[in-house]
Nucleic acid binder design. Structure first.
Lengths: 128, 128
DNA sequence: TTAGCATATAAGCATATATTTATATATTTA
DNA sequence: TAAATATATAAATATATGCTTATATGCTAA
């Protein structure tokens, strides 16, 4: 989800598209003229931006007006900041990492040893 | 720059690495144990995160301690928000787009026409 | 100074991505 | 209903990316 957003924004053409849409609702053919690139190229990038949740389409005759989802965008950034600032123990999906992190805490030069230790063992070799 | 950051974060392994480093300074071999993945795999991702500016390395004996550049990170996010919220005319690198955007303003169904218009022409066909 | 640890890098491979060209679909208008 | 417009999608291709295996480098300690 957040990953899709970053992946979508980590490409120059899409970053430009989203910046243009942040200015104004536009259709594919507007973008075609404004950016000077081919229609399929725009359509394909638009699809990725839509799947990431960054834009919405609205039919208007033959055209499809593209709208930047500003609320979604700010929400995602907020969520991401939370994700980065929360204590790791409170972040979902890092349970195993937290366990292994505790295991090697204060443990010096024993990565390999830890790797080979049994589940209930802890590292005896401590850093000063 | 901002693009490199998004590209760096738009990959699951790197997103996990950066989240772990946000918790604590770690070395490659710590990550190896904590994440349970191969050393070259980590090294390669670390390189990309470093090139994006998201982490810094500090030698400590044989190890290379990896630090999350939190200040850089928040700065980048701030800059990006600015980039997205500024009027397009004030954003560097969109001069041509702004010009073409004005040209098709209020212009209905004439994308192709605009494309073929000479520089000093403007579209006569206006939307209601 | 040799052995071992920590990391980097290179080569090879498989998959993913971005672009172009060509074609299909859907809507409007003559 | 045929032609034109707006968009989507498919196929083909070139390049990029991520991962593994193997090897090189650099530091530390015996």
């Amino acid at each position: 989800m957040i990953e899709d957003v970053f992946k979508a924004l980590g490409e120059p053409t899409r970053l430009r598209i989203i910046r243009l849409l942040a200015e104004k609702e536009l259709c594919v053919c507007d973008l075609e003229v404004i950016m000077g690139i081919s229609q399929p190229r725009i359509s394909q990038h638009v699809k990725i931006l839509r799947q990431a949740g960054l834009i919405t389409e609205r039919r208007e005759g033959q055209k499809r007006m593209l709208t930047f989802n500003r609320d979604f965008f700010t929400q995602v950034l907020d969520d991401f900041c939370l994700f980065m600032n929360l204590p790791l123990e409170e972040v979902e999906g890092f349970e195993e990492e937290v366990k292994r992190m505790k295991k090697i805490e204060g443990c010096d030069t024993c990565a390999i040893k830890v790797k080979n230790m049994r589940a209930n063992e802890t590292c005896k070799r401590r850093s000063k």
